[in-house]
């Protein structure tokens, strides 16, 4: 059930944003997409989610071309979490989570309950989303994706704007999803989070993949110098590394 991009080229607003990218992503892993601003990370995520049609190349899931998959079938397979989405109506937490069942057109009580439990939302289920903290809101939005029981979870900067404890908590939830066999792809800005929590990292610059592989290799100092133009090195041991800049 791999998600495979083959020579993928994407354009937005008439401008090329991803060029000739090939990568095979595996379920059961957390894949982080990193790169400087404007590198095409969010566009690549949209392409992998089947929400941005390729101008050339393809994205396939389980051998099916996403572009030819019915929107509902695609939605059942791939859950997408946009960056800090604006919630139009001040619905209760539980109602928002239940939106995750829309691709299935069922009540999905068990799946909703499971998502609520997994993200510790039982106490918040009747609270309007306007009254949630940033961390609670991020958990609710992830729970909405989990309620759809997708095979893949694609999240655009899910850890942005969260404090340290909230980041670690949400990263642990994403790890649990991967451990349960779901594929997880996240766009991250924080390279230390990618280094410490991802199983695989794709590094983009100007829409081109400049490195891919395990974090230690893909985020090696020469790649950071090439991608961000910054001299940096890693300190600490596996799972708890910190990036320091300068010689």
């Amino acid at each position: 059930m791999s998600l495979v991009a083959d020579n993928l080229t994407l354009r937005r607003g008439g401008r090329p944003v991803v060029a000739g990218l090939s990568a095979a992503l595996n379920p059961g892993e957390i894949t982080a997409i990193v790169g400087p601003n404007g590198a095409g990370k969010s566009s690549l995520l949209l392409g992998l989610a089947g929400l941005l049609a390729p101008t050339s190349g393809s994205v396939t899931w389980d051998g099916h071309d996403l572009a030819s998959l019915h929107p509902r079938a695609r939605a059942q397979a791939i859950g997408y979490l946009p960056q800090a989405p604006d919630v139009a109506w001040d619905v209760a937490t539980e109602t928002l989570v239940a939106l995750g069942r829309l691709p299935w057109r069922d009540r999905g009580t068990a799946a909703i309950e499971s998502a609520v439990t997994a993200l510790d939302l039982a106490a918040l289920r009747h609270r309007p989303v306007s009254q949630l903290s940033g961390g609670e809101r991020a958990r609710v939005l992830l729970a909405r994706v989990l309620a759809g029981e997708p095979r893949w979870i694609l999240a655009d900067e899910p850890l942005a704007a969260l404090d340290l404890g909230q980041q670690l908590s949400l990263a642990a939830h994403l790890k649990a999803c991967a451990a349960a066999g779901q594929g997880v792809v996240v766009v991250l800005h924080d390279l230390a989070l990618a280094m410490n929590h991802a199983d695989r990292v794709l590094v983009l610059k100007d829409g081109v993949l400049i490195a891919a592989g395990p974090p230690v290799a893909a985020l090696a100092p020469p790649v950071i110098a090439q991608g961000w133009g910054v001299q940096a090195r890693w300190l600490g041991e596996a799972g708890a590394r910190a990036l320091v800049t300068g010689g």
Partner: peptide, 18 residues
């Protein structure tokens, strides 16, 4: 139901099959 999906914005709605 499609209108419900728009609650989280257009991209999220399309990701839910809209």
């Amino acid at each position: 139901r499609s209108l419900d999906a728009l609650t989280l914005g257009e991209e999220a709605a399309r990701s839910m099959g809209l």
